[in-house]
Design a protein around this nucleic acid. Structure first.
Lengths: 348, 348
DNA sequence: CTGAAAGCGCTTACAG
DNA sequence: CTGAAAGCGCTTACAG
């Protein structure tokens, strides 16, 4: 009688209900679903039929507790209030999801802010986690270690630590090359619209660019660096727009390096309004996160491909390996590539 | 002795370890962390200290099993092989995440394909689910019902069902208005680059557009409809590009309705290559999913704002309500708005 | 304010 | 091929 209501939502059927109704043990029902041990044809059919009748589906949580595995990978990613996931983040997530689902893992997004109260420390039901934008001396790294949860960073740990796994671009080398390219093309002064100052990528990239100028004997003050600010700038495009509006004519740069394609879009708009021809009078190079976008604007953007998707996929692969063997440590650098299109031209 | 190794990853500390070491019961430790019943200051401190020593963190899975709640909302979203999450999907996810995390819920992405084998039906450890792009007669709807899991659709159920909750744009009305706008501006023939044919939005939108033409007494063959095809088209932009390349000159349309901004980008590029002036010779209206992008291209796109983020947020709100009271049913329509910019002009 | 014990819904040696 | 029972790590009436 009780069963009659099981699929009306009053009470969800459990393995016990199925076992009793089918006249077998719970272990047998379990085996029918998990296929971990062979069950006779007849019993299998009876169990499946009863299960269907009762609307029974195995409880994932109970199963996870028993086998001590959730088959879920956590993606720790702060969500900005201003709603904008960057193209970079999106591609990255895409890479993570693709790789995880290939291996049967689901992905849990946890954007919840970190809490200091230890009794509030958010523990996710995951077998491992991928963490974006680790902070300096990030306390979470040791915490995950204590919890026995495999961890892979996207972005390098600061300070360096040979025991933590991560994937990253070679950000210093990236801007070193961009800088070299600009210098080779006669640009001796550049405006760098960099990422937010508290990100490790921002300092790495600034370093590389300065290096390039130093290498070619240029004075350091030829590089004008600005940083995105969540407080001041309402969006990436607005950042690019405002920056060029304020700086053009103030400093004598002939090229702009934009942190993302969207920043570059803002720069382009400002240039249009100022009547500045790109790339005739001003060159632009974007540190790209959106390959399609870069090719569809006019002029097409010369940009650096960061391969966000590969970063995500690689992080997921390492994590999956690590979930099978906690002792694995792997640190990967994903190549970047400068793609010449139309927005950057030799200074004549 | 055993404890000495607890934070070395050999074995993770449990509530039992803490209870024994602190000389209290498990119930007490539980209460210290959950704060569900008052525990004396001294005991609380001792427990917390021992917990810290042992590197103890409550096990989320065990807790979920006991309280029969995971505080996780599932987002059922097929991931396309070609890696492209559309701007629409991204904003939608953003809305879902924002609203869920406000209420302390995490979000589980489940892009795993549906399996027919009942023993393989993927059950997620979630308290409720938001499902994108429900199919016709979607069997999952009754399945979630059987499992006693609250469900909210994004997109309308087909056939209509007053017992299922969903949020959607009014897609028919949307294209009705776009059509009316074009007709008012003298466009008597239009190329509609619609979404994939198997999506309910595609049929709804086609309906609305035909309606608009019918209302103004135009023959139906003035509307040329194409559908995106995952097999043929490699990307949204490529779809727009190829479509215009193939159709321009073949049929006598003076306006294009593009399914997304990215499709519109492709159309713009094709127009450029064909030497067709937009909006001088050809008007374009995008069913927008990326407000920023629409404003940054040249000419700025006249587009329909779909408010993907609001769709996501609204779905999440309904789901959260529903998780507290299974009996709640709510069906919401999110307004769309035609935003006039530069890419569509009156035919002279 | 605290403890002992049953219960959440599974899995898995062990035994046959 | 199948069953009985212990165990996964929590929570929560119930009793004091």
């Amino acid at each position: 009688m009780e069963f009659r209501f099981a699929n009306r939502g009053d009470r969800v059927a459990t393995i016990d209900d199925v076992a009793k109704r089918a006249g077998v043990s719970k272990g047998t029902v379990s085996s029918v679903f998990s296929k971990k041990r062979p069950i006779s044809r007849q019993v299998t059919e009876r169990v499946l039929e009863v299960a269907k009748d009762l609307g029974y589906f195995p409880n994932h949580v109970a199963r996870s507790l028993a086998i001590k595995k959730t088959m879920i990978a956590g993606l720790k990613m702060p969500i900005s209030k201003d709603n904008t996931m960057s193209g970079f983040e999106i591609q990255l997530i895409n890479g993570v999801i693709r790789e995880c689902s290939k291996q049967g893992y689901r992905v849990l997004l946890d954007p919840l802010p970190e809490h200091d109260d230890p009794t509030q420390f958010s523990i996710d039901p995951v077998d491992g986690v991928i963490m974006l934008n680790p902070r300096r001396q990030d306390p979470r790294i040791v915490r995950y270690n204590q919890m026995g949860i495999p961890l892979v960073l996207i972005g390098r740990p600061d300070p360096e630590d040979p025991t933590v796994s991560f994937v990253d671009n070679d950000n210093t080398n990236l801007t070193l090359q961009v800088g070299a390219h600009l210098l080779e093309n006669g640009h001796k002064s550049v405006l760098f619209l960099n990422a937010a100052a508290d990100m490790t990528v921002a300092s790495d990239r600034q370093l590389g660019l300065m290096q390039a100028f130093a290498n070619s004997g240029q004075p350091a003050d030829r590089v004008h660096v600005m940083n995105f600010s969540r407080k001041i700038n309402s969006s990436a495009t607005e950042y690019g727009y405002t920056a060029l509006m304020n700086m053009y004519g103030q400093s004598a740069f002939t090229a702009v390096i934009a942190d993302t394609d969207r920043v570059a879009l803002g720069v382009l708009r400002a240039a249009r309004e100022l009547g500045v021809d790109v790339p005739g009078e001003l060159s632009i190079i974007a540190l790209s996160n959106d390959a399609i976008l870069a090719q569809e604007v006019t002029p097409k953007l010369t940009s650096v491909e960061l391969s966000a998707e590969r970063l995500g996929a690689e992080a997921a692969q390492i994590l999956i390996r690590k979930m099978n063997d906690m002792n694995i440590v792997q640190q990967s650098i994903i190549e970047t590539k400068l793609i010449i299109r139309e927005s950057c031209r030799r200074l004549s």
